[in-house]
């Protein structure tokens, strides 16, 4: 019976060894758990989300710059649809006589920290956002009265919303240029002709407007761009062609040195 006892002892050792070995894989799982966010992070998210909600406050009365009244009327878009050229009805609206200034935008980010350079976040803007400023609330060297540039689309939109206005639609912007003439863009601080809309480009609400209007659309940007000229209602309007091409190449998070904006509002 001595052998049986010995066998039992060996078997016991085996089992112990087995347990020890199978336990060896446990630390890996523990480590995996350790990497998971701690529950407190969840609470932090909720706070963060509230703090980061875009402002919905009432108009602040800033930027009461002169505005131009554009009466309602028909506008022939640069691009024709499937059924040929059809004028589009544009309701009356008012639009800033000149693009929003650096000064005005500084007031905006002062009151709305979420849109400061350090706070905007990579979803809404690339790093070049307000790149020529010296800091979150410092304008840097360029004149305070110059047009603010390197502004991402969401920030431009939030600015207009903060004063109870909105970005103009592409059709509105183009109609304003047609109604007002070259002076519409002359205040951009550039001598370039209105035809090319100066050296300053401007955001519109629907910059990602798709000029093709038949249900089946070619996918590639190249098609979009190259097809553009062929679809123009007025092929001689090179400026319009450039503007549409430029806008369709934009992404909402772009913060370009030569891209600013102005606001518009319904009514006369």
């Amino acid at each position: 019976m001595g052998t049986a006892k010995r066998r039992a002892r060996w078997a016991m050792l085996g089992v112990l060894g087995a347990l020890a070995l199978s336990g060896a894989s446990r630390p890996r799982q523990v480590a995996a758990h350790a990497q998971e966010p701690e529950p407190p992070a969840l609470r932090a998210t909720a706070v963060l989300a509230d703090a980061e909600r875009p402002p919905s406050d009432a108009p602040l009365g800033v930027n009461q710059a002169p505005q131009l009244s554009i009466p309602s009327g028909e506008f022939l878009p640069f691009y024709r649809g499937k059924d040929g050229s059809k004028p589009v009805r544009v309701e009356a609206f008012r639009i800033d006589a000149r693009p929003v200034t650096r000064e005005a935008f500084l007031r905006f980010v002062t009151d709305h920290p979420r849109w400061r350079r350090s706070r905007i976040g990579r979803l809404f803007s690339e790093p070049s956002y307000l790149g020529d400023w010296a800091g979150d609330l410092e304008l840097g060297r360029a004149a305070a009265g110059d047009a603010v540039t390197a502004v991402a689309w969401f920030a431009a939109k939030a600015y207009c919303a903060s004063i109870g206005e909105r970005l103009p639609s592409t059709v509105e912007w183009e109609r304003a240029l047609k109604v007002i003439g070259p002076t519409f863009t002359a205040t951009n601080g550039s001598s370039a002709s209105a035809n090319v809309a100066a050296s300053l480009w401007e955001w519109t609400r629907d910059f990602n407007f798709l000029p093709l209007a038949d249900g089946d659309v070619n996918d590639s940007a190249a098609n979009l761009f190259c097809g553009a000229g062929a679809r123009a209602t007025d092929a001689s309007d090179y400026g319009a062609f450039l503007r549409y091409s430029f806008r369709s190449s934009l992404k909402a998070d772009f913060a370009l040195k030569n891209l600013g904006f102005r606001c518009a509002v319904d009514g006369t």
């Binding site: 878009p77 059809k86 639609s169 592409t170 990602n208 798709l210 000029p211 979009l224």
Partner: peptide, 10 residues
């Protein structure tokens, strides 16, 4: 993503 939603256009 681009699309058109201008009134009067398909």
């Amino acid at each position: 993503f681009s699309y058109s939603d201008t009134d009067g256009m398909p």
